[in-house]
Amino acid sequence: MPRSFLAVLAIALGLPFLILLAIVSSASGVSASVFTSALGLVIMSVVLMLVVYEIKRIADLPPDAH
């Protein structure tokens, strides 16, 4: 998968999730730490996905390209 496709997919899935979190966290019964925890989890998930993708890309290179 090309990187541009992954970036668009991450934005298309992540942005509505963050907007939903902002709306829900503005409710009186939800503390602000829930939003920060969820945001941290989303950021760490994206970083982990990119790391795994890069490792896979490097592993798939021909042996003389390393």
Rank of each mutant, 00 (worst) to 15 (best):
L61K: 11
R3I: 08
F35K: 04
D64Q: 13
L20M: 11
S33F: 06
I55Y: 05
M1P: 13
V30M: 01
E54Q: 15
E54A: 15
S25L: 03
A38E: 02
L41E: 01
F35M: 06
A10L: 04
S4N: 13
A38K: 05
Y53V: 08
A38Q: 06
A12Y: 01
D64I: 12
L9A: 15
V46N: 00
V30P: 00
S31Q: 09
A32Y: 04
L48M: 09
A65H: 12
R3Q: 07
T36F: 06
K56R: 15
V52E: 06
I11W: 02
V47M: 06
S33D: 15
A12Q: 03
A10H: 02
A22V: 09
S28T: 13
G29R: 07
F5W: 05
S31Y: 02
I55A: 14
A10W: 00
M44S: 10
G14L: 02
S4V: 13
L39N: 03
I43V: 11
D64R: 13
P2R: 10
Y53F: 11
A10V: 06
L61H: 03
I55R: 15
L21M: 15
V51Y: 05
M1N: 13
D64F: 11
F17K: 11
M49D: 09
V24N: 02
L6D: 05
T36Y: 03
S25F: 00
P62E: 03
A12M: 06
P2K: 07
S31H: 06
M49Y: 15
V52P: 05
E54M: 13
V47A: 11
A7K: 05
V30H: 00
S4K: 13
A32D: 15
I11G: 07
H66M: 06
G29V: 06
L41S: 08
T36D: 04
V52I: 15
I58A: 15
F17I: 11
L6C: 08
L21D: 04
Y53P: 03
L61Y: 03
I19K: 08
I43W: 00
L39V: 14
S33T: 14
V24M: 04
V34P: 02
S37R: 07
P62G: 05
M1S: 15
V47N: 01
Y53T: 09
V52D: 07
A32L: 09
S25Y: 00
S28M: 08
V51R: 09
L13P: 03
S33N: 11
I43E: 01
R57W: 02
F5V: 11
I23Y: 10
P62D: 02
A32G: 12
S25M: 03
G14W: 00
I43N: 00
A10C: 04
Y53A: 13
S33G: 08
S26G: 11
V47T: 07
A7P: 00
S37W: 02
L18D: 00
L15P: 01
I11S: 08
